[in-house]
């Protein structure tokens, strides 16, 4: 102890304690006086702060960086999770949109079909096409109603866009229809504008066109004309659209004209149709 005293170490210790005590007392006294007043920093404190500031700044920066990294890692995970959820949501919404579009298209089709049914003087039976075109060489389809529903061979099948075909074979619960563009189809037709009469026959094959034949040599027909059923022959009601003329030509021999007609109904895309329940001779 004496030795330490001689060295002055105790003195230094006491001085430090005293300094600390004084600092504390001084600090407390500035705080206790009145809180309204601004606290004047005690000089040593101030010094310490000046010295500490760069370290604090650096530490703050470093901890900020680490904090940023950990936050970004956390947020990356969150973002990935959010991204996954959003992708699933987009998928679900896309499916919903597709379903709604499908419903809207169906509603539009059915509205047109309903309008046709209300306007038609004949009794119409709504049918669905359940199978179509099982061979390249024929344009045929199967409908979901048969003789039990009053369907007979020869009855015309129509849509709101025009004539689709004709029933040619019937079983109790289903029937086969032949499209107007089938090779074996034929229906009385006329040009809507000029009333020129002829006969529309199917051409089959890939083109899907109709052949308007037996037109008089001087018949007034031009591309763009609308061709409708003439009602002659008793197969189809009069005035049903068949298609639009795309090409007019004079038959070999020059005695008659004929025209290529693009059907108004695309057989491949029809889903619902009506069978005209008229008595067929």
């Amino acid at each position: 102890m004496l030795h330490m005293l001689r060295n002055g170490k105790i003195a230094v210790l006491i001085a430090l304690i005293a300094f600390g005590t004084l600092t504390g007392v001084a600090h407390n006294s500035t705080l206790d006086e009145d809180k309204v007043f601004s606290v004047k920093p005690f000089i040593p404190e101030d010094c310490v702060r000046v010295v500490m500031k760069p370290f604090q700044n650096t530490l703050s920066c470093v901890s900020g960086v680490f904090d940023g990294i950990s936050k970004s890692l956390r947020s990356r995970k969150l973002l990935q999770k959010e991204n996954r959820q959003l992708r699933e949501e987009v998928k679900r919404l896309n499916m919903e949109v597709a379903q709604l579009r499908e419903d809207a298209a169906e509603a539009k089709r059915l509205r047109s079909a309903l309008a046709l049914k209300q306007q038609s003087p004949d009794k119409l039976l709504a049918v669905r096409i359940i199978s179509r075109n099982p061979s390249e060489w024929f344009v045929t389809a199967t409908i979901d109603r048969g003789s039990k529903s009053g369907i007979q061979p020869g009855q015309p099948v129509i849509t709101h866009r025009g004539m689709l075909g004709q029933v040619f074979e019937v079983s109790p619960t289903s029937a086969l229809i032949r499209g107007i563009n089938d090779n074996h189809s034929g229906v009385g037709a006329m040009v809507q504008r000029s009333r020129a009469m002829g006969m529309c026959q199917g051409m089959g094959g890939e083109s899907g066109l109709l052949h308007l034949t037996y037109l008089a040599k001087d018949a007034d027909v031009k591309p763009g004309d609308i061709v409708v059923t003439s009602g002659q022959g008793g197969i189809a009601p009069k005035g049903l659209p068949l298609g639009r003329v795309v090409k007019v030509q004079v038959e070999s021999g020059g005695f008659m004209k004929s025209a290529k007609v693009k059907p108004s109904v695309r057989f491949e895309s029809v889903e619902e149709a009506f069978v005209v329940l008229r008595k067929v001779e």
Partner: peptide
Amino acid sequence: IHGSIVGEG
């Protein structure tokens, strides 16, 4: 089968 579903030929 094919003839039956086509209905022709």
